[in-house]
Design a binder for these strands. Structure first.
Lengths: 235, 235
DNA sequence: CCACGTCAAGAGCAGTGCTCTCGGAATCGT
DNA sequence: ACGATTCCGAGAGCACTGCTCTTGACGTGG
């Protein structure tokens, strides 16, 4: 009953994958703007209308690609941060994210650039989007940070937002980080935005004429952010 | 001889402006993706082909809008940082940029989001794009920073890039910042990327579920960055 | 005054996303 | 094993896009 069902389903799943692969290929060449359903259909040897059996719209295809991209970069970060001292894990995660971003600039732009269509549905994407920041949070939870400088005290409202963030439950029923003090979460937010701010500037060309190539600036800043977080010095 | 010529030219300049204004209007509503030459022409009561007398292509129109946007946010930042103590100028510039970004999210996306077409020509845009970072550099030049913490030493190559950056000449023949030590320029680069990293995350929806609304996080981070830069404490 | 340069208009091309309908094929219930 | 149902690819077609080329009118400068 489901050997045959899965036969159909398997064919369907395979073709769905092929469509996404071809779309990703065109994405890497021409960018999201130029990606057209008709041309991926053409390339796959089918007619454009047939493709609508698999994705209800161009936006839905894009959304699928967005989720895949979040998962791809998230997985890279997770793998990179698997083991080592906190500072080493932080370094490796940063470099893994940058390597992925530079290898797939258009996919990076898809997820961290301007939201392309009439905004892809957020809810499906959040779980995947959270994987990178979760890597950072895990590093912070398993270390005892001693930040390089204090910084201004948190305001009441901000501390509240951060505490609520730490209490949020993931899809698998765990709380994100009930043990992390708001100050630590705040520092995490800062380095998170800094990391992707750097990558966006590098990939979107804001660095041309200043720190371009950005390798050394990136490395230095990653180290500075580790100090800022208070990750114990390496070696 | 040129009273009449300028008569023609004035009509032309006016219509060029009207086209950009209408395009900006549609941009604010539908986003850059949906902006179509035909519909701005339609709205202006002319036929699409006539519009090509003013902009050679859709991309050229977009590029014009990009330059205008850079100039708009640059001017806001300059105005905001006109006077006051360094820290106050920094604060006001940051808030001016954020206010503009929130008021014109699609224009912000145009310049700080993913590069839209096959990359708009950079050279025309750099002068306008540099206005915001130049505001920051001017603040740094007119203060005597005492940063809140040292951070790792600059590598040789990075220091070289930053010195070269300081020696670059602006269109009006001035050097950018020959007097600023590389360490200071490096801190400037960091806060610059942090500022726009935060804004991009806020506007592109990465903060939903964490520090959303981002007002307090933004304010706090601006202050923290001022400490990081070593701007003398206010009052 | 008239020729030249500028301009808006229109038709047309190639391409797009998306819809609907139509036959054929695979699958399922019996 | 067969009929019913569900799925799927093909094709035509609609409304739209950016862009090109030609045509005819208008204002201006010699």
């Amino acid at each position: 009953m489901n050997a045959s069902r899965t036969a159909r389903d398997r064919a369907r799943a395979e073709l769905t994958q092929e469509i996404k692969n071809e779309a990703r290929r065109q994405l890497a060449v021409d960018g999201a703007l130029k990606l057209s359903l008709r041309s991926v259909a053409r390339e796959l040897g089918m007619v454009s209308s047939a493709l609508y059996r698999y994705f209800a719209s161009r936006d839905e295809l894009l959304t699928a690609l967005i989720i895949d991209a979040y998962d791809a970069v998230g997985e890279r970060a997770e793998k990179a941060a698997e083991e080592g001292a906190p500072r080493e894990r932080w370094r490796r995660a940063c470099h893994a994210v940058r390597a992925w971003a530079r290898a797939h600039p258009h996919e990076y732009a898809l997820i961290y650039g301007s939201p392309i269509p009439g905004y892809a549905a957020p809810q499906d994407t959040v779980a995947s989007a959270a994987r990178v920041p979760m890597v950072l949070i895990r590093i912070l939870r398993e270390t005892n940070p001693s930040p390089a400088f204090e910084g201004p005290p948190l305001t009441e409202g901000l501390a509240g937002q951060l505490r609520a963030l730490g209490e949020q439950v993931t899809p698998d029923g765990e709380r994100i980080a009930p043990d992390l003090p708001p100050q630590t979460l705040n520092r995490g937010m800062v380095v998170w935005t800094q990391l992707f701010g750097m990558l966006s500037f590098e990939l979107f060309g804001q660095f041309v004429g200043s720190v371009d190539p950005a390798d050394e600036f990136f490395d230095h800043t990653v180290e500075q952010l580790a100090d800022f977080l208070g990750l114990p010095p390496a070696r």
